[in-house]
Design a protein around this nucleic acid. Structure first.
Length: 626
RNA sequence: GGGCCCGUAGCUCAGCUUGGACAGAGCACCGGACUUCUAAUCCGGUGGUCAAGGGAUCGAAGCCCUUCGGGCCCGCCA
């Protein structure tokens, strides 16, 4: 809590002055000054008052700043009415430095109580277990993971779920391949099983269905067997999908992503939750049995402004979104939990990964939330809107179920070309079915190779093991940052060549600033001593760094309230730029005197500690050398 | 036909929720800085009718309306 203190102080003093002068109450804004020459903080109060007071903004700004001069408080050094009408403030850095440095040293710096320990579910990843993860999935995973970390730091009680659609058509496709298509259940040497299933079996089988009607029939049969869940086929499919899932999870873990529970669709289907929810919707009048027209004999959701949606076909079989409704209600804790839980794995960070089971031998645990965030790309917006509406009816409360949508990842024309797809210069939609995608593991491998070479060149003294570790950390940092830095409603056009860039606004740039800071502290002759005055920090480079460090909790609050992970990415970048500028202009170890060296060591230390926390939120690790 | 999203520098994007000070970054391009705490860096330069038009406002990239361009979604598939 630092810059926030300055903002709060200014806000409340302005409020006080406005009251003293009997001005009408206005929702004025206290924010960071747009340019250095305007000072550190600006307020637009005079503009807002100008309307009712019928005076020029400057005139009002002038009165207010004169009044403010009488008591400048703890954190303000100067107040000025700018000709434009803004009231501008210069911070009292003697106070701000101390306050920022002291707070940012603390272990839980940046923690902010937005969530008030509310139980919240974040569901993400949710990839069909019949293929490897491609970069489109990576965007989902990284958004979900980052949001869950931000919510955790904002004092929500977060549970992270990964929904495994193990009973759908896509799974049936590869099962047919193994049972009737002649594909071995053993992958070729050197290939991951998930890659084999997706790149070879799934893609090839999809082609074969086009020409072989016999196989297509088998698929319908297999799909039915999967849903019933008792047959030999279902058991076989279960073995296969779990094998694929475990390979997918390796990729997620490689990206630094962990979960609390795997929820298997097949078990949701067999749990009979649907029946309960179906009856509930009937009794609430949410769905109706259509008596006539094209949907005759179906249970549908009526919609005034959109097409009616069929939930139960005229043959009595539920459509696929009918699986999502009980699951959504389950996530919100609105149904008696039919599941038991057994341990699936212990993840690298010590977090236990559980999985649902219907066997009563498992534990009874709690993975539901008062609020639920489901991360799914915006192509599903229509269906998610329906589910959101049904959930708010169920709960008689708006906003408990939230669809966090985002635009998809497409491939650049050049990258599509490397897959043999000619788009005549336009970007290409990815398709697992058609084999148009870039696998996540492959991207990480290619990035890793490049970062390994770079790291080796720069650090000839480092051993092989360290180099490999660093290169992997940087590769993951590069990919994660690229996936999170832009807004959710912007399409990411993925270009393989461009993604290898490690300069400028990238993850590695930020990580590099951390490595630089680490080396300064490592090479310093003494540990930083914080029991001193920081008045000696006076250059713009030092003060800007202090200010940047002091913004952390404000950024987290913003990101958490708006579920906008890119805010943290931009903050990390801002921190890194500010530090790199400082680094190039201000010497730490060779500063004029010992006390200045110490004071600078202290801000370098605080920068490093704040950056590592911010990067943690993005799931990006901070190597001390690179 | 209906719905959702996008359009800001050659390219990729911030800024838009909550209107105010000369519209900011990165990449690319041009020039400069490594016997120095790692040059994955820094400093400077070139580059913009904020898609177009209209409206409300003292004031619009931002709010409202219209148009144009691009993407996605609209099955008794999942």
């Amino acid at each position: 809590m630092t810059l926030r203190l300055l903002f709060d102080e200014i806000r409340s003093r302005l409020k006080q002055i406005s009251d003293e002068l009997h001005y009408p109450q206005v929702e004025f804004e206290v924010s960071e000054a747009a340019r250095p020459e305007f000072g550190d903080v600006s307020c637009n109060i005079a503009f807002l008052l100008a309307k009712t007071l019928k005076k020029r903004p400057l005139e009002i700004a002038d009165i207010i700043s004169k009044q403010y001069q009488k008591n400048k408080g703890k954190f303000v050094k100067e107040i000025a009415a700018h000709p434009s009408g803004y009231v501008n403030f210069v911070a009292n850095f003697s106070e701000l430095n101390n306050s920022t440095i002291t707070s940012s040293m603390q272990k839980r710096y940046g923690d902010i109580n937005v969530g008030k320990n509310l139980k919240i579910v974040v569901e993400h990843t949710s990839v069909n277990p019949n293929k490897a993860l491609h970069i489109g999935h990576v965007r989902n995973i990284i958004i979900g993971d980052t949001v869950s970390k931000i919510l955790h730091k904002s004092q929500y009680d977060v549970r992270v779920l990964n929904y495994v659609d193990d009973s759908g058509l896509q799974v049936a496709d590869i099962i047919v391949g193994f049972k009737y298509g002649g594909y071995s259940t053993e992958q070729p040497k050197g290939q991951k099983f998930d890659h084999y299933c997706g790149d070879v079996v799934y893609v090839n089988m999809t082609e074969k269905y086009e020409t072989d009607s016999n196989l297509a029939e088998k698929r319908t049969l297999v799909l039915k067997e999967l849903e019933e869940g008792t047959s030999e086929t279902a058991k076989f499919a279960n073995d296969i999908t779990r094998k694929v899932l475990d390979e997918q999870l390796k990729t997620c873990w490689r990206l630094g992503v962990t979960y609390d529970c795997l929820n298997f669709e097949s078990q949701v289907v067999r749990s009979n939750l649907w029946k309960i929810v179906f009856e509930k919707m009937k009794s609430m009048g949410i769905i109706e049995l259509e008596k006539e027209g094209k949907n005759e004999g179906c249970w549908v959701i009526k919609s005034a402004d959109e097409e009616d949606k069929v939930l139960v076909r005229s043959n009595g079989i539920a459509t696929y979104i009918a699986k999502d409704i009980p699951y959504a209600a389950w996530k919100l804790g609105m149904l008696d939990d039919p599941f038991y839980y057994k341990k699936h794995a212990e993840q690298a960070n010590g977090r236990i990964l559980w999985e649902t089971t219907l066997e009563k031998t498992g534990n009874k645990l709690d993975f539901v939330g008062e609020k639920v965030i489901t991360v799914i790309d915006s192509r599903q917006s229509r269906l998610q809107k329906l589910i959101t509406k049904i959930m708010s009816d169920f709960k008689s409360q708006e906003g408990a179920y939230f669809h966090l949508g985002y635009e998809s990842v497409t491939l650049s024309a050049d990258t599509a070309k490397t897959l043999g797809v000619d788009t005549s210069g336009k970007e290409a939609q990815m398709s697992g079915r058609k084999g148009i995608y870039i696998n996540a593991d492959d991207v990480l491998d290619i990035l890793g190779k490049k970062t390994y070479e770079e790291a080796k060149k720069r650090n000839p003294d480092l051993d092989e093991l360290s180099l490999v570790k660093i290169s992997e950390q940087v590769a993951v940092g590069a990919l994660r940052y690229a996936m999170i830095k832009q807004d959710l409603d912007k399409i990411i056009t993925f270009d393989l060549t461009e993604s290898l860039s490690l300069e400028g606004d990238t993850g590695p740039y930020i990580q590099y600033s951390y490595a630089r800071a680490s080396r300064i502290l490592e090479k310093a002759e003494t540990e930083p001593n914080f029991d001193v005055s920081f008045d000696g920090l006076t250059t713009e480079y030092e003060l800007n760094l202090v200010k940047a460090i002091g913004k952390f909790d404000i950024q987290i609050e913003d990101a958490a309230k708006n579920l906008s992970p890119k805010i943290i990415a931009r903050y990390c970048y801002e921190l890194a730029v500010t530090f790199n500028t400082f680094y190039e202009h201000v010497k730490v170890l060779t500063a004029e005197d010992k006390s200045l060296i110490n004071a600078r060591l202290c801000i370098v230390y605080c920068f490093k500690e704040t950056l590592v926390k911010a990067l943690d939120l993005l799931g990006i690790s901070s190597p001390s050398r690179m």
